[in-house]
Computed example of a mutant assay.
Amino acid sequence: MTAELYTSVKNAVKAAMRAKDKERLATLRMITAEFKRIEVDERIELDDARILAVLDKMTKQRRDSYQQYIDAGREDLAAQEQLEIDIIADFLPQALTEDEIKALVTAAVAQSGAESTRDMGKVMAIVKPQVQGRADMGEVSKLVKQQLG
């Protein structure tokens, strides 16, 4: 059984081919290549949860590259990274607001019984599956530290 997100990406590749949208097609092919690489390397079939994690990681990599290009004054390369971020974002669920993230973190702290930053791993283990692909994990981590600190 193929994951829903996997099918969505494949359909987007076909649509981009029909529309002759070379930039979008290149990014979509990069995404499917990453999916295939993981399937071959790990000998598994990706499910939606793992696909979200992969897309989240790809977005984070592009954000890092984008910032480096901006810092280096390479707006042309930064624009390409931003385009890829936008295309990947099409397949990620709606982003959570800061208030929604805070509520999830508060609930996770209560559920885990965490009392200090030493218990951060317990809280993150509860929060991460809920926010995967919907929030920047760096921001989530900061919010957890604030609540535990």
Rank of each mutant, 00 (worst) to 15 (best):
Q67L: 05
R74Y: 09
R24S: 10
Q67Y: 06
Q130I: 13
T117N: 05
A135Y: 01
L96P: 13
M58H: 03
K10Q: 12
A110S: 14
E23S: 12
T106R: 03
L28K: 05
A19L: 08
G73Q: 10
K60S: 09
A72D: 15
F35T: 00
I126H: 12
A103Y: 04
L143V: 12
Q82A: 15
Q147I: 06
V105L: 02
Q146W: 11
T7S: 11
V144S: 13
E23D: 15
Q82F: 14
L46M: 05
Y69L: 05
S112H: 12
M58R: 03
E98L: 11
M1K: 06
M137I: 11
S112C: 13
K145Q: 12
Q80L: 06
L52F: 10
S116W: 04
D136K: 04
R74D: 15
F35I: 00
E45Q: 04
A108V: 05
R62P: 00
L92Y: 13
S141T: 15
M58V: 02
K22W: 10
D76H: 10
E115Q: 13
T117K: 05
A12N: 04
Q67A: 09
I44W: 07
R24T: 13
A49W: 00
E39C: 02
L92D: 13
A114K: 04
K128G: 07
S112I: 10
Q80M: 11
L25C: 10
Y66V: 09
A114Y: 06
K128D: 08
M137H: 08
R63Y: 09
L83D: 11
R74M: 11
D119W: 09
E75I: 09
M17W: 05
Y6L: 08
E75P: 05
G113I: 12
M30N: 06
T117M: 05
V54L: 04
L143R: 11
E84M: 08
R118V: 03
R62F: 00
K57N: 02
Q147K: 15
T117D: 04
V123S: 15
A26I: 02
I51H: 00
E139V: 04
I44S: 02
R63T: 00
V13F: 00
D21C: 06
E23N: 13
T32R: 08
I88A: 07
M17T: 03
I88E: 06
L55A: 01
E100D: 07
L104M: 07
E39Y: 00
V131N: 09
V140N: 11
E42W: 05
D56F: 02
R43L: 05
V127L: 12
D47L: 06
E81Y: 10
L77I: 08
E100Q: 14
M124D: 13
T59V: 08
E100A: 09
D56P: 05
L25Q: 12
D21A: 14
K22M: 10
M58Q: 04
A19C: 07
E81A: 14
M17R: 12
D21N: 14
R37T: 03
A72I: 12
E23P: 08
M120C: 09
I85S: 10
V123M: 13
A108T: 08
D76R: 13
S141G: 12
I51Q: 01
R37V: 01
Q146F: 13
K60L: 06
Q147M: 12
T117A: 08
K57L: 03
V109F: 10
A3K: 01
V140A: 07
T32P: 11
I51G: 01
K145D: 10
I126C: 14
G121H: 09
E42V: 01
